Amino acid sequence: MTTQNTATADSSWTIFIEILSDEFTSKTGFGVYAHITPTDVNQAYQQYQLRNAPMRLFVREYVRHYV
């Protein structure tokens, strides 16, 4: 059971980074790490997990803060 939960968490993390990078790229022409540090990405993911919002909506609002 723990392995499945870890796999789900890893999958969610991977999808989050892909969506975040896509959003930065579409808005600025550069990926996520051109704008924020890996620590910032981790903090953004933690913020996302605490909110009850769809991932894409959270990411869109987050990127809007930087652009």
Rank of each mutant, 00 (worst) to 15 (best):
Thr39His: 09
Arg51Lys: 15
Asp22Pro: 00
His65Lys: 13
Ser21Ile: 00
Gly29Ala: 01
Tyr48Val: 03
Ala9Thr: 10
Phe58Gly: 02
His35Gly: 06
Tyr48Pro: 00
Tyr66Arg: 08
Met1Gly: 15
Phe58His: 01
Val63Asp: 02
Ser21Glu: 06
Gln49Val: 04
Asp40Glu: 13
Arg56Val: 12
Pro38Asp: 02
Thr37Gly: 05
Val41Met: 04
Val63Cys: 07
Thr39Glu: 14
Ile15Tyr: 08
Arg60Glu: 14
Val67Gly: 06
Gln43Trp: 07
Leu57Tyr: 12
Val63Met: 06
Leu50Gln: 15
Gln46Trp: 05
Trp13Arg: 15
Ile15Phe: 13
Val32Arg: 00
Asp40Trp: 04
Leu20His: 01
Thr14Leu: 13
Asn52Pro: 00
Thr6His: 11
Thr2Glu: 13
Arg51Ile: 02
Glu23Val: 07
Gly29Val: 02
Ala9Met: 07
Ala53Cys: 08
Asn42Val: 12
Ser26Asn: 14
Val59His: 07
Ile17Cys: 06
Thr3Arg: 14
Leu20Ser: 00
Gln49Trp: 00
Thr14Phe: 08
Trp13Ala: 12
Ser21Met: 01
Ile19His: 05
His65Gly: 05
Tyr62Lys: 09
Val32Asn: 01
Ala7Ile: 10
Ser11Ala: 11
Trp13Asp: 10
Glu61Val: 07
Ala7Gly: 08
Lys27Pro: 05
Glu18Ser: 14
Val63Pro: 04
Gln4Ser: 11
Thr8Leu: 15
Phe16Pro: 00
Asn52Leu: 10
Asp10Leu: 15
Gly31Val: 00
Phe30Trp: 12
Gly29Thr: 04
Tyr66Gln: 08
Glu18Leu: 10
Glu61Pro: 01
Met55Gly: 03
Leu20Tyr: 04
Thr14Pro: 01
Gln47Phe: 07
Phe58Ala: 04
Tyr62His: 11
Asn5Val: 14
Ala34His: 15
Leu57Asp: 14
Val41Trp: 00
Glu23Ser: 10
Thr6Ser: 08
Ser26Phe: 11
Ala7Val: 04
Pro54Ile: 09
Thr39Ser: 11
Ser11Arg: 09
Gly31Asn: 06
Thr8Pro: 00
Ala44Val: 03
Thr39Arg: 12
Ala53Ser: 15
Gln43Met: 08
Arg60Met: 09
His35Asn: 07
Gln46Leu: 09
Ile15Gln: 13
Asn5Arg: 13
Val41Arg: 03
Val59Asp: 02
Tyr45Gln: 02
Ser21Phe: 00
Lys27Ile: 09
Arg64Ala: 15
Glu61Asn: 13
Ser21Gln: 01
Asn52Trp: 11
Arg64Gln: 14
Asp40Met: 11
Thr14Asp: 13
Asn52Asp: 14
Thr14Trp: 09
Phe16Glu: 03
Ser12Phe: 06
Pro38Cys: 06
Trp13Asn: 09
Gln49Tyr: 00
Val59Ile: 15
Asn5Ile: 13
Ala44Glu: 03
Ala34Val: 07
Ala9Ile: 07
Gly31Leu: 03
His65Cys: 07
Arg60Asn: 14
Tyr62Ser: 05
Ala53Ile: 15
Tyr33Leu: 15
Thr28Met: 06
Leu57Ala: 13
Ala44Trp: 02
Tyr66Leu: 08
Ile17Phe: 04
Arg64Gly: 03
Asn52Phe: 11
Ser12Asn: 11
Glu18Met: 09
Leu20Gly: 02
Gln49Glu: 10
Asn42Phe: 09
Pro38Met: 05
